[in-house]
Design a protein around this nucleic acid. Structure first.
Lengths: 215, 215
DNA sequence: GTCTATATACAGATAGAC
DNA sequence: GTCTATCTGTATATAGAC
């Protein structure tokens, strides 16, 4: 089985090879078929180890799920939608770049499958849901807010409530694509995504652009 | 297949009392604990019938789920966010009313639980997902679009793409509340909802209000 | 149609040899 | 640490009496 998992969470040395194989198999099976449907036998088979070995590393099926989600959240953490670089902001290109990165991120197969896995089991594993929320959506909101604050400081935008505006921007460019995906009704076309991004930026700027510096 | 289910919603006459008890129990248990976790034994117990009786009405656990979702979708169908009444539209109050109805609908426990149930099992039951999508989200979008078209006809709004604008409006007033709920991180406060609605309307109107009739 | 009792399969988890 | 073999509970679904 392919195992390109290079992250810092799990010890990458050869010693823990089987452990990483197990996590890889769990990721594949849990995220595609679901937690309850996936048996420990199936994971052991997919990972190429025995079931007993599996229980050496993880005390229970629940523990394996938690470890997996923690690991995945850590691996998606470092990404950044925007970082200050001291130079003047070009508003529209910057917003478009943020929107593109964001939709790419949340339409990415791995992130999306993780989302669904967490969501489907949030009731039974509330801690997992919080970890995911902090590493994923909340982080995105904060990065957008950071950008908006910088744009306000440069007098490009006028925003009474930065947090609200960040949520509005992300909601606009996301539209209802998440629904389509959550319900597994096929991936939206590139055209759909582009139309949503362009339209979203237009609406957002109509509301928040500083009229005094409009060229 | 002992049942030719001819119904629109389940026949409420006394004859099918136990059948409705079963559907009620299935709704309660499936939507709160999940499909896989809920056993047919538990449903039979909750419904106050034997498991064998249950299998007289539904060929399998899967069939019970499908029947339940169909039934729920039919029961949420008739609602309306807006209907034309021939009189001139008062823009802001009308948008606010639509937004309130919409958030009330999608924050409603029953609708929300149904959403999660469908979503969690969409991969295995694609037909179910389509039925839900048509009866729920898609229907809402269409009703908003109908309203927007009427407002455009009365020259209150200027909208190049009605479908896109409808999605944008719903996205704005929904914000990321669905995330919070999907991940079971608690119901949003009334204040949060109100802020989102007011802010969303403001942004929407800034982008689409017809400037020529602004009072 | 409805029940009790049961067939059959497979789940999560463990024992014990190496 | 890793394996094979197994324990134990519970799941879906059915048989057969009434």
């Amino acid at each position: 089985m392919p195992r390109p998992r290079r992250n810092q969470a799990i010890d990458p040395s050869g010693e823990n090879r089987k452990l990483r194989q197990v996590l890889g198999a769990a990721r594949e099976l849990f995220t595609t078929h679901g937690f309850d449907v996936t048996s420990m036998d199936a994971i052991a088979r997919e990972a190429g180890v025995s079931k007993a070995t599996l229980y050496v590393h993880f005390a229970s099926k629940d523990a394996l799920l938690s470890a997996l989600v923690d690991d995945e959240c850590r691996s998606i953490g470092p990404q950044m939608l925007w970082q200050p670089d001291g130079r003047p902001i070009e508003l529209e290109p910057a917003l478009r770049a943020i929107a593109r990165d964001y939709t790419a991120f949340f339409l990415d197969d791995r992130g999306l499958k993780l989302h669904r896995l967490v969501m489907s089991n949030a009731a039974r594993f509330p801690k997992m849901a919080e970890v995911f929320m902090a590493a994923g959506p909340r982080r995105c909101e904060q990065e957008v807010a950071t950008f908006l604050r910088a744009a306000v400081a440069q007098q490009l935008l006028r925003i009474p409530d930065i947090g609200l505006a960040a949520i509005q921007f992300l909601s606009l460019v996301q539209g209802r694509l998440h629904l389509q995906w959550e319900l597994q009704l096929g991936r939206p076309s590139a055209n759909d995504v582009a139309a949503l991004i362009d339209g979203g930026i237009r609406v957002f700027l109509a509301a928040y652009r500083n009229p005094e510096i409009r060229p």
